[in-house]
Design a protein around this nucleic acid. Structure first.
Length: 280
DNA sequence: CGGCAAACCTGCGAGC
DNA sequence: TGCTCGCAGGTTTGCC
């Protein structure tokens, strides 16, 4: 589920139920996520008041009144879900529960357990090894076409893999990199350093547009990703290429007979989707 | 530095 | 029906 737009959607869904609320109970049902939950996890969080819910790259950050921050990564299959009023039986793979002083429950469910939670002590967040080397937030004022050009100019790997590098730019994952390159008309195989001039601007605009549009519709629901409210995301309906191997790309309708339509290739072990007719 | 495979773990759909 | 295979939104590590 979780690339930047999905994590942002989770953040926006959780914030109204957590900010200003006291955690009256933090329950660790299963401590062996990708990393073990921190020592004393429940004790450290129970009784704390949440002061803010934020996102950095694909990390959800929950700040508490003692200055500590819960750093949560959703891995491939992590989900947060809010319950209030009705509390259905625990589901398979529910691993962590936060109960608030307003009687709501926030449950973390993660079948594959690639997700994890860590706690940064007061003042340690920005020096935390998980946080400090992350690249610029693509939707912040801190990021622009010039900085993108700077970041790419010495990179000789394919642009696909460079954009997946979280130290270059924060938050892009396998789906959105394919979609961004499609909209920018850039081949995923092109060397990053060979992108300049007009192409840089197209790429920058595609990154901002794709991520913004995805956030505005609650992210992408591929299998069963849901927003914390239970509502689905809808950006998958706007995919130009992802998961559409063999189909005519949404721009072309084109010479599908000559190009074979949307192609799927493997780059550094992961599927890339693109239209050879539109992306150079 | 680069690319690739494997590792972590579970579930699902396709094909036989 | 049941088995095996390949695939999946991420990231790290180790090996050429």
């Amino acid at each position: 589920m979780p690339e930047l737009p999905e994590v942002e959607t989770v953040k926006r869904g959780l914030a109204p139920f957590l900010e200003g609320r006291q955690i009256v109970q933090a329950v660790a049902l299963r401590p062996d996520l990708r990393f073990p939950l921190p020592d004393g996890f429940s004790q450290r969080l129970t009784g704390r008041v949440v002061v803010c819910v934020k996102r950095r790259a694909k990390y959800l950050l929950i700040g508490f009144d003692d200055g500590a921050t819960l750093i949560s990564h959703l891995g491939m299959s992590g989900r947060f879900r809010i319950y209030e009023g009705e509390f259905p039986a625990l589901q398979k793979h529910d691993h962590v529960i936060f109960k608030t002083d307003q009687g709501a429950e926030v449950r973390y469910n993660d079948p594959r357990r690639f997700g994890f939670m860590k706690i940064a002590n007061a003042g340690d967040l920005f020096d935390h090894p998980l946080i400090k080397s992350i690249g610029p937030e693509p939707l912040s004022d801190d990021f622009n076409a010039k900085k993108l050009a700077q970041a790419l100019k010495d990179r000789h790997s394919p642009i696909k893999s460079v954009l997946l590098d979280q130290t270059v730019i924060a938050g892009l994952g396998n789906i959105y990199v394919s979609e961004v390159l499609f909209r920018a008309g850039i081949s995923p195989k092109r060397k990053a350093a060979n992108i300049s001039g007009v192409r840089i601007n197209k790429l920058y605009n595609a990154i901002v547009d794709v991520l913004s549009q995805a956030i505005s519709v609650g992210g992408s629901t591929i299998s069963d990703h849901k927003q914390p409210s239970g509502e689905l995301g809808y950006f998958q309906n706007s995919f130009g290429v992802y998961g559409r191997e063999g189909a005519a790309c949404s721009n072309c309708n084109c010479n599908i007979l000559e190009t074979g339509g949307v192609r799927r290739i493997k780059q550094s072990g992961r599927s890339t989707f693109y239209c050879a007719n539109q992306q150079r």
